[in-house]
Structures are given as C-alpha cells and as structure tokens.
Design a binder for these strands. Structure first.
Lengths: 197, 197
DNA sequence: CAGTGTAAAACGAACGCTCGTTCTTGACAC
DNA sequence: GTGTCAAGAACGAGCGTTCGTTTTACACTG
C-alpha cells in the first residue's frame, strides 16, 4: 500500500510496539528475537525495519512508554482539587500498581527496563527522566500535606517525598516476588508507622 | 593440575564466579559471552565447563550470592542485643545499601537478576527465597519495636514489616537512578513521617 | 630415587545454529 | 510511468557448547 495516510504510519508503529510489548513480557528483552516480534505483529521483516531502524530503537520506545500510565495517574492525583488525604492518595496509587504487577501488567517489563538501564546510557536517561517525574508528583503531594497540616510544618518536604515515593517500588516488588501483602495490609502498615506508640 | 586438593576446586569455582560478577556488572547477563567471562577468569573454555555445565548455571550461582551480604547484615541487626532503635537499625542498613549501589556494588547486578526472575522460574525462586529471608528480618525488627514500646502495642507487625522492608528497594532505586537522596535525608523523611503534624 | 602408568584437569579449535540486519524484487496507488 | 511500501530470501557475525588432545601431579615399582 504505497502513499499511505499519516494515520496509517502511526498505526503501524503502534502495532509493532504492541507486539513488542507482548513478546518482551513473555520472553524478555533479550530472548525475544526480531522474528518473534515480527510474527507477533503479523508483518514482514522489511515492514518492521521501515518503522524502526533497529531492535534497540524498539526497546527504547518501549522504555519510554512503560511507565506512562502510572506517571499520568501520579500527576493527576498530586494536583487534584481538593487535595485528597495522604493515605487516600497512596491508596489510589497502590491500586494502579496492583494492576501493573498483575496479569498482563507493565511492571515486570519495567523491571527488565531497569536492568537494561544499569548498562545502556540512553535507557538509563529515559528511566531517570521518568523516575524524576514521578518523584516530583510526590513532592507536590508532600508539600500540600504540610500546607493543610497533615504533616508537621517543619517537615523536610523533599525528604518526605523521597520516602513516600520509595514506598511504591517497595510495594510493587513485594507483590511481584512474594505475592503479598495486599494493598490494605500495606496501607495499615503505613498508618501504623504514621502513628507510632 | 590433576589430583588436586578440594580447596583448589573451591578456589577455581570462586575464581570463575568473581570473573562472572565482573563481566555481568560491566556488560549485563545477556551481553556477556562465555568468551568474555572465560578471558576475565584467565582460564580456558574447557576449564570453565568443568565447573559449571552451562552459562545458565553460572547465572544461577550469581543470583544466589548477589544479596548475601545484605541478608547477613539484616539478620545480625534484627537479632542484636540489645535491640537498636528502629531508625538506628534502618540507618545501618541504608549505609550498606549505599555501598552496594555505588562503584562496584552488587545492586545493579541485583536489578538485572530481578529482571531475569520475571522470566525464569528457577531464578524467580531464588529471588523469592532471598526476599522472604530479608522480609523476615524486618518482621523481627518490627516485633521487637512493638515489644519495647517504640511502635503502638496494637501494631500489625507483618504490615509494618512490609512497609519498613519496602523502604529499602525504594531507597536503593532512587540512589541508583537519581543519585539522591543521601541516607541522612532519607532518614529525616522517615522520622518526619513517624512524627506527623 | 629414577622411571613409568594413570587419571584428573585444562586446553582450544571447531561445530551447528540463530541472530539482527540488508537488499533485491515486485505490487499497487496515483 | 513513477514513487512508495512491503515482502522474505539471504548473509555474515557471533553465540554457547562439545570433544579430541595435551599437560600435569601423583602413586607405584624396583
């Protein structure tokens, strides 16, 4: 199909990325061959190489998109009016994390991307940027919690944000590798520490 | 050297694993070839295959050992007499994490192993087991904090342990990808949340 | 102690295979 | 015609692993 609409081009790209995600999730970034990915997309070798000039370019595109959903949620929750209580905000985020850890979720793929980020500077930069964005949402969350008196007025907002943000991968990894705790238990733990003896 | 001491055999195995660790840290689990690893060890192909029957077996051995130091520290701290205050115990653990995140530390390798664990059941089981062991140390830590009144008597110990444990990968990943916060800042954040407004 | 046999240990060339990528060919819309 | 896009056979590089050969340490013999 020559001389094709721009929409078609974008759709093809998306089709390839969807197939890539499926394959990477099933077999990993490295064990997935271009043949696998091409078969999954239902395209030919030539077609795929028209839209991405290498496997690495596909991996980068996946790395860019893998945390998109969570990032968007964080930005929404952290700027919502009126600001939800801290524990309520965390609860919503944990719900989203649970989905990503579960069947067909993106979290296992994100873990693979982290591994790649320890080696490849381009992917490292992508991950750093995403991580930065997520953390900034937590700074907003913490700042507003101080403003409305949920946290002490002299709280170091940056420090508190780091800890709150740190709870997320801590939760996700336990879910992924141990299968527990569930969200409510984890939140109970957070509350317990927020109100120590 | 034929008919050689048992020490010699163990030392050779160790020599191969040290070389593997170096290579995996430098180029990753998948981009490291047997040739790389063999050259790093200063041995021959045949020699390495005498001690490990496949590359996968070497990866498994590395996965087994990668978190050994942190696990040992956690076990020591959580059973130490007299029990250190919670924040003090966390501080020691964060110091150890900092070392592992830094130059030549094991944490980047651990992240790669996590990625592999999402695909390979054998490695997943190794990671699960290690994760379990670490979490148990935190259960002990939390239980003793309740006993001595540092946490409320009605605290859900399991839940609190999950959260405290979750702080560790949360801290390590931020250090790895963002380069901050430092230990003292993170601890300040923990204290701030432990004593909310 | 010298000589010899033996089996463990190490060696490394070679193999079979799979990979990511290129490139020639042809089909179709305009 | 002409330009765009897709197809898939073909390619060369490089992989993990095997295996026939060589080296070495030691036991045993006289």
């Amino acid at each position: 199909m020559p001389r094709v609409s721009e929409d078609h081009l974008i759709a093809r790209r998306e089709q390839i990325l969807v197939a890539a995600r499926t394959c990477f999730l099933r077999n990993g970034l490295h064990n997935t061959t271009m043949q696998d990915l091409i078969a999954e997309a239902g395209l030919s070798v030539g077609a795929v190489y028209r839209y991405f000039k290498s496997k690495n370019e596909i991996i980068n595109a996946i790395a860019e998109s893998v945390a998109g959903g969570i990032t968007a949620l964080l930005q929404e929750v952290s700027t919502r009016e009126p600001a939800p209580p801290l524990v309520e905000a965390l609860s919503e985020v944990f719900d989203a994390i649970n989905v990503q850890v579960g069947e067909n979720g993106n979290f296992p793929l994100a873990v693979q991307v982290w591994g790649e980020a320890t080696l490849d500077p381009a992917i490292r930069e992508i991950v750093r940027h995403r991580y930065q964005g997520m953390r900034e949402a937590y700074v907003t969350l913490a700042r507003r919690a101080v403003e409305r008196g949920e946290l002490a007025p002299d709280t170091d907002v940056e420090a508190a944000a780091s800890v709150l943000f740190g709870l997320i991968p801590g939760f996700a990894l336990q879910r992924l590798f141990l299968g527990h705790p569930d969200k409510d238990t984890y939140l109970r733990g957070v509350r317990a520490l927020l109100n120590p003896g």
